[in-house]
Amino acid sequence: MVPSDEVPTMGVDRHWRCYVSPGFVDRTPVAELAAVWVHEVAHLLRDHHGRAGLLPAADQRDRHRVNVAQDCEINDDLVSDGLPLPAGRLEPRLFGLPEGQLFEVYLAALPPSGFTHDCGSGAHGQPVPWESGGRDTGPAGVGPAGVGPVEAEALRRHTAEAMRAHVRARGTLPGGWRRWADEICEPTVDWRQALAGAVREGAAWAAGAIDYTYRRPSRRSASLRGVVLPSLRRPLPRVAVVIDTSGSMGESEIAAALAEVTGVLREVGIRGNRVTVLACDADVRAVSRVTSAEQITLSGGGGTDMRVGIAAALEVRERPHIVIVLTDGLTPWPDENPSCRIIAALIGPSAPAAPPWVESVRITG
């Protein structure tokens, strides 16, 4: 908190300092002050200044209009939550716009100019005269140094988790806040890119396991009469794909996920007899070496225990370097890492999490 006679009411900078006019405090009821406080904090929690930095340059220069659009994003949630914002508050309905949209949507629908509203750089991202400057030096004697980006993300996550706990306890939260909390706690990730990255990393890790072989003697053997020296080799990674074919897995889910996984394997250069596929529910139903998804035989439909499939994968004659488990997560897992790279492709947004030692990628669509 930074007292300031220059700010008209309240405002925030991008370093999480809140500037407050003492005159505004004196003349405003406590309940309204609290509502304005929540409004200003919402700019920071929703990273409005960061999002504003991604706008086209012309929009960024029109900071007042950006600020109005941001207020529309915030205030419909605060009003629906019963917070007594002061008269003159900016809401989507004042511009004939629907509630529940992001500020980027409102911005495109607002009139081109004529606004003077300003909540500070913590909203629109542009510095204003009443702010104190950089993060590390707060105004001498009247305020703290600012909050850094790591602390800011921690505050956002802590708040989002508290909101979700509130929903579980009472079941109520304005739609915009619910959407925001879900996005912070479960950010949208391109799972195909994440899966490809995990497989590439595993393949690189396996390919780095240099070993000796006598199949190709070392060239140094020629200088040592009667002695055969082994050469170094860098093995190509072998991959096992364990497919959950239990009753809880639909055929369409399995087919879609399997097509993606085989595509990823081809993309990273792993194909042919380097891939073993095991169909598993509570027991291993089929094991096959494949070169395409069409060659895979799927059977099962009973209970679920991926521990059996992982154990079977590690017992094949040529032990895999990477095991990919396609499952809806409704399964027990091994108690410890079985000294092999395990990647769990968890199908569906509600799939339970795998153990922390398992690399997990959520397949959401």
Score class of each variant (00 low, 15 high):
133 G>A: 09
40 E>L: 08
271 R>W: 10
100 G>D: 10
53 G>K: 05
20 V>E: 10
325 V>R: 07
217 P>D: 08
315 E>M: 08
194 A>Q: 13
8 P>F: 09
349 P>F: 02
60 Q>M: 08
156 R>G: 06
253 E>I: 00
51 R>I: 05
144 P>F: 01
80 S>Q: 13
200 R>T: 13
66 V>I: 09
316 V>I: 15
328 D>R: 04
304 T>I: 04
266 R>K: 12
24 F>C: 07
115 F>H: 10
141 G>D: 05
363 I>V: 15
35 A>E: 09
190 D>K: 00
221 S>V: 04
306 M>Q: 04
195 L>W: 08
3 P>I: 12
334 P>W: 01
350 S>E: 14
273 N>W: 07
214 Y>N: 07
337 N>V: 02
229 L>A: 06
96 G>F: 07
354 A>I: 01
33 L>R: 12
231 S>N: 08
199 V>L: 11
248 S>V: 07
145 A>L: 03
223 S>M: 11
15 H>W: 15
252 S>Y: 00
154 A>L: 14
321 H>R: 10
129 P>T: 06
108 A>V: 14
345 A>V: 10
342 I>R: 04
79 V>R: 12
32 E>G: 02
338 P>G: 03
74 I>Q: 06
8 P>D: 13
82 G>D: 10
32 E>T: 15
187 P>E: 09
104 E>C: 09
127 P>H: 10
34 A>E: 15
105 V>D: 15
215 R>K: 11
184 I>D: 08
365 G>P: 03
166 H>F: 09
266 R>G: 11
122 G>A: 07
197 G>Q: 11
305 D>Y: 01
68 V>T: 12
346 L>H: 05
255 A>Q: 09
83 L>W: 15
120 G>E: 11
161 E>V: 13
76 D>L: 01
248 S>W: 04
152 A>Q: 11
5 D>N: 11
334 P>H: 02
26 D>F: 08
62 D>N: 12
334 P>C: 02
75 N>W: 10
189 V>A: 09
88 G>T: 12
132 S>C: 14
277 V>N: 00
93 R>W: 14
33 L>D: 03
208 G>L: 09
49 H>Y: 14
233 R>D: 06
231 S>Y: 04
194 A>L: 05
165 A>W: 05
312 A>R: 10
31 A>R: 14
196 A>L: 12
136 D>Q: 12
128 V>S: 10
276 T>F: 00
347 I>L: 14
220 R>S: 05
269 G>C: 07
66 V>T: 08
307 R>K: 04
77 D>C: 09
83 L>Y: 12
156 R>Q: 13
326 L>H: 07
327 T>F: 12
38 V>M: 11
281 D>V: 04
248 S>M: 07
230 P>R: 05
360 S>H: 03
36 V>G: 00
147 V>G: 01
125 G>S: 06
334 P>E: 02
277 V>F: 02
68 V>F: 02
235 P>Y: 02
211 D>H: 06
106 Y>M: 13
254 I>L: 14
139 P>E: 15
280 C>K: 01
185 C>A: 12
337 N>H: 04
70 Q>K: 03
118 D>A: 09
158 H>T: 14
225 R>G: 01
343 I>C: 10
170 R>W: 14
121 S>I: 09
22 P>C: 05
23 G>M: 11
248 S>P: 00
240 A>I: 03
88 G>N: 07
